[in-house]
Amino acid sequence: MIYNAMKHSLGASLKVAFRPWVEGMENIPEEGPAILASNHLSFSDSFFLPAVLERRVTFIAKAEYFTTPGVKGRLTAAFFKGVGQLPVDRSGGRGAGEAAIKSGVDVLARGELFGIYPEGTRSPDGRLYRGKPGGLARVALGSGAPVIPVAMIDTEKIQPPGKAVPKLMRPGIRIGKPLDFSRYEGMEGDRFILRALTDEVMYEIMKLSGQEYVDIYATAAKRQLAEAAKAEAAKNGRAKAA
């Protein structure tokens, strides 16, 4: 009930304010489990996609969003619960990853939609990065659910990382045809199969989004950018001191 109320109020507000366009809505099944595998450009991706869908979709969210103390923390927790976010502690290494996979399989076992970002984190520069096979592929093979590739368009321009106030402009959502990976049933322990499945999904996302593909993980790209920025700042500091 809370989800439906939040979805209708938030969804209506987002549609009126931003007027998102959607292609491929017919690829979302009317019932039954499915995995929505999307690129990740902005914090707002997890709001725009649920807003345009008739069915509930559950995403994994950092546990900190649900445990922050104070009034703001309680409001944030209520908001994320209301829009169907599922808290998972991602600080515990492999154990945290296993918890996220189990949560996804449980959602799908109930016949619901599960949303996941194969890149594992937001793109630092608008390009599409290599998908992590440990999440998407294992949830897909563990549940047997079809994978539906999704491309978020221009959401990074609405709310870039670090910007609290969104810019009013139209984002887009392209939804691809469901991918069936039943041919890999029982092979979730094979890392080459996990890699192949993930790469196939990322290729479909790339075709839908039109993004440039970079064959490294987004976390590594963020680290490289941070190191470059730090080196540049040190260089400028030395130049000022000279």
Rank of each mutant, 00 (worst) to 15 (best):
A137C: 11
R130T: 15
E31C: 07
I153G: 02
G186S: 12
A51Y: 09
T68W: 07
R195F: 08
R170G: 10
I153M: 05
I216T: 14
A140D: 03
A231G: 14
K235V: 06
S209H: 04
R138W: 01
W21P: 04
P178G: 05
R195T: 15
E188D: 08
I205H: 00
A226Y: 05
A140N: 10
I35A: 03
G95Y: 06
L75I: 15
Q85T: 01
R19C: 06
L75N: 04
A234H: 02
K72L: 15
V71S: 06
E232C: 00
S9V: 15
E200N: 06
K7A: 13
G95L: 01
W21R: 13
V165G: 02
V52M: 02
Q85S: 12
A242M: 08
A226T: 06
H40L: 08
V22R: 13
V147P: 10
F43V: 12
F18N: 13
S209C: 08
N27M: 00
K240P: 00
I28K: 07
G134I: 05
I2L: 13
G186E: 05
K177Y: 00
M169C: 08
M152Q: 14
R130M: 03
E64H: 01
G92I: 09
R74W: 03
G32Y: 05
A137I: 08
I35C: 06
P20V: 11
I175K: 04
A63P: 05
F59C: 03
K15D: 04
E232T: 06
G115Y: 00
R191N: 05
N39I: 10
E26P: 07
V16F: 15
D215T: 09
T219H: 10
G70V: 02
V88G: 14
V88W: 07
G142H: 13
P166D: 14
F59W: 14
S91G: 13
S143C: 04
P69W: 12
P133S: 07
R94H: 05
L108F: 05
T198Q: 01
G237T: 08
W21Y: 09
P69F: 11
A100L: 08
P69L: 03
L10H: 09
E54T: 03
L53Q: 11
V214R: 08
F43K: 09
G84Y: 01
G189T: 03
G104S: 12
R19P: 00
E26S: 12
P20M: 01
V214D: 06
A234P: 12
L208W: 07
I193G: 13
F181V: 02
R138Y: 02
E212P: 11
I60P: 00
I153L: 15
V139G: 09
P20D: 13
K167V: 15
Y217C: 04
K72H: 12
L86M: 11
D106H: 10
V165A: 10
F192D: 11
A100T: 09
E54L: 04
L136W: 01
S13K: 04
A34D: 06
Q211A: 05
M169P: 03
A196M: 05
E98Q: 14
V214P: 14
E112I: 02
R183F: 09
A96D: 03
S143G: 12
E185K: 15
E212V: 10
D190I: 08
E119T: 00
G95I: 10
A228N: 02
T76N: 07
G82L: 14
N236D: 14
G237I: 00
A228G: 08
E112S: 12
L75Q: 11
V201Q: 04
R110W: 00
M25E: 09
A164M: 10
E23K: 14
